[in-house]
Each structure stands twice: as structure tokens, then as C-alpha cells.
């Protein structure tokens, strides 16, 4: 039997998609819906992984898909951090600037300190510590939701011959006495 295909290349593709979705301004709003962009990256990584299987290779398992999802999450966090910094350096924080302009144009009373705090927070985004913290947050979240995306992918692309979903047996039910 042939060995299982390499996990790194599909994880790299999935991670790049994950990082692009998370970094591109306005597109990254999709992550506000329970990290949909990150889940999608993990899911697509499993889809690419599945495409490399031939009839001669052993079927992929839930563990394989978890590994692919986690690897995609690591790649996604790196791509997200690098691209976010690039976009920040080139265009500035366009999303937050847009939100700030939106609040200014609305008919609501907002204290001036709010704007100062908001602008201060935008300036601090380029500080070294904030970059490290953002990478740390991105790494944990991307790996966690990449794992989930990988599992969702496994549930969808699982080979037909494999066993159906089998939850753990129900606990013993006592008979009415």
C-alpha cells in the first residue's frame, strides 16, 4: 500500500487562504461570525489533502484531518500577522478609520475622550508588544478553529466505506423498580 500523502502542502494552501481572509481589510469581518474564515481555511486544507489520495493509499482518519487543520492554523497565523502588518504599514488601519468616520457622521453624542482613546489604540497597533500579542492570539485561535475546520472537513469528505458516526454508547439506564 502507498504511504499517505504529505500533509504540509495542503496545510500551506489552507493556511494561506486562512491568512488572506483574516488579513485583508473588510474581508476579515467574516471572522466576526464565529471565525468562519479560519474554519474555512481548515476545511479547505482537508479538501486539498483529500484530493491527493488515490485508491492505493489508506483512507484518511480524523487524526490526519486534525493535524492538517492545526498545521493550516499555524501557517494562517504567520500569514495573517505578516500581511496585517504590511497592510497596516501601506494603507493604515482602514477598517477602524472607517468605523471612526461612521461614528463621527452619526447623530449620536460621543465624548471627545472616546475618539482620543480610539486613535491612541490605532497608533499602538504598530508597537512591538502589540504585534507579539496579536500573533499570540492569532496562533491560538487559528490552531483551535483550524482543528475544528479540519474536523468539519473530515465529516464531509470522509470516505464512503468508513464507519458512520458512532458516538460513545449511552450510559446504562436503570430499570424502574
Amino acid at each position: 500500500m502507498n504511504p499517505k500523502p504529505d500533509k504540509k502542502i495542503p496545510a500551506l494552501y489552507g493556511g494561506i487562504i486562512m491568512g488572506l481572509i483574516s488579513a485583508i481589510p473588510f474581508v476579515n469581518i467574516i471572522n466576526c461570525l464565529c471565525c468562519t474564515g479560519i474554519l474555512l481555511g481548515g476545511f479547505l486544507a482537508v479538501m486539498f489533502y483529500k484530493n491527493n489520495f488515490t485508491p492505493g493509499t489508506p483512507p484518511f482518519t480524523a487524526g490526519d484531518c486534525l493535524a492538517v487543520g492545526a498545521l493550516a492554523g499555524i501557517v494562517g497565523a504567520v500569514v495573517d500577522t505578516v500581511l496585517s502588518l504590511m497592510f497596516l504599514a501601506i494603507f493604515g488601519d482602514v477598517t477602524q478609520q472607517y468605523i471612526l468616520d461612521l461614528i463621527r457622521n452619526m447623530d449620536i453624542q460621543v465624548p471627545e475622550e472616546f475618539y482620543e482613546l480610539f486613535e491612541e489604540a490605532m497608533r499602538q497597533e504598530m508597537a512591538g508588544f502589540a504585534i507579539i500579542m496579536n500573533f499570540f492570539f492569532a496562533l491560538i485561535l487559528d490552531v483551535l478553529f483550524g482543528l475544528l475546520g479540519g474536523l468539519i472537513g473530515y465529516s464531509v469528505f470522509k470516505p464512503k466505506g468508513q464507519q458512520p458516526l458512532q458516538p460513545s454508547p449511552p450510559p446504562f439506564m436503570p430499570q424502574a423498580s
Binding site: 482518519t61 480524523a62 487524526g63 484531518c65 486534525l66 475544528l148 474536523l151 468539519i152 473530515y154 465529516s155 458516526l165 458512532q166 458516538p167 460513545s168
Partner: peptide
């Protein structure tokens, strides 16, 4: 959870 629990269990068992 109904879909993922058996799969998470299966992968955690390793």
C-alpha cells in the same frame, strides 16, 4: 456537537 463529538472523541482517543 452531534456531528463533531464522535469525531473529536475518535481523534482524542489516539
Amino acid at each position: 456537537a452531534f456531528i463533531l463529538t464522535p469525531l473529536i472523541e475518535e481523534s482524542l482517543e489516539k
